[in-house]
Design a protein around this nucleic acid. Structure first.
Length: 270
DNA sequence: GAGCCTGTTATAAA
DNA sequence: GTTTATAACAGGCT
């Protein structure tokens, strides 16, 4: 499931392929009307002949920056972007295809059709729904403390909410909370300074380690030519129900928090 | 074959 | 106003 490290991995993988190329038009497959937000006519009018200045990541979005505006691609659960390769034409579940003026293509595959593509003429409406980048200099311990103390939510729900901090999803939230020894149901305004410091460090460590290992291939995440992320084998709690905690040897259990399957060590995370 | 699972948004309820 | 829960989306997997 693509979270910040997985999206960053895709962006780094596709950057050399796409940067500097010009977009000709987008084709939508039949039945993919919800994949594109807005009409195909308006989209193509806006992006036609625009050069991809850079490929960037913001939150869990892949950003194709253009001279005028930008395109956002969200993979949601099962979305995948492929640069052109010989065998790619045979892939099932292609929902949209970018044609580049070089004649090359960029394919958007999405089994469950939750993924979204959108053109934004300006960044304000896009940015206003998004919180701080957790790996940026802006995300200091003090910044996190302020966010936590002015809320009274369950810490897991808080961390999943992209309006506060972006990029964390079910996998990396569970991993960060284990690392910081914090129970996911704890209220954010009841965390003490030591816990806040540990959580701050844990968020940065798990995300950076995720990037360093090209993400977590647990279910459907792949990048490039069917490459798998290597972080799955470094996971401490996620998808490890019944295994022993590597810190205290207690059993990892699964509970429900914020309507999500949640993995914790019952002893380490009280 | 019913239910699970997940990111996000919308909406309802507390 | 804030927080939590639930449904919806879609389809593969158990």
């Amino acid at each position: 499931l693509p979270e910040l490290p997985e999206v960053e991995t895709v962006v780094r993988d596709l950057r050399p392929y796409l940067q500097g190329k010009k977009i000709k038009k987008l084709y939508l497959q039949p039945g993919a009307s919800k994949t594109l937000q807005g009409t195909i006519a308006n989209f193509n009018k806006a992006v036609c002949n625009q050069k991809i200045i850079s490929l960037e990541r913001r939150a869990k979005y892949i950003i194709l920056r253009l001279p005028v505006g930008f395109i956002s691609v969200h993979l949601r659960m099962t979305g995948r972007l492929y640069g052109q390769r010989p065998q790619v034409k045979d892939l099932p579940f292609i929902r949209a295809t970018f044609e580049l003026s070089s004649g090359q293509k960029l394919y958007f595959q999405d089994v469950r059709r939750f993924g979204k593509i959108k053109y934004w003429p300006k960044s304000e409406p896009f940015e206003e729904r998004l919180g701080v980048e957790p790996l940026s200099d802006q995300f200091t311990k003090e910044f996190l403390q302020q966010l936590l103390l002015k809320s009274s939510r369950q810490v897991k729900a808080f961390l999943l909410d992209q309006k506060s901090i972006v990029g964390l999803g079910n996998i990396y939230v569970d991993e960060a909370l284990w690392r910081a020894r914090i129970h996911p149901l704890r209220k954010t305004n009841n965390l003490n300074p030591k816990e806040i410091k540990d959580l701050w460090l844990a968020i940065r460590k798990v995300l950076q380690a995720g990037i360093d290992n090209c993400g977590t291939t647990f279910d459907s995440f792949y990048y490039g030519a069917e490459q798998m992320g290597k972080y799955a084998k470094l996971l401490k709690v996620f998808d490890r129900v019944g295994e022993k905690c590597q810190r205290c040897a207690s059993e990892i259990i699964k509970i429900k928090v914020a309507t999500r399957g949640t993995h914790i060590c019952q002893k380490c995370q009280q």
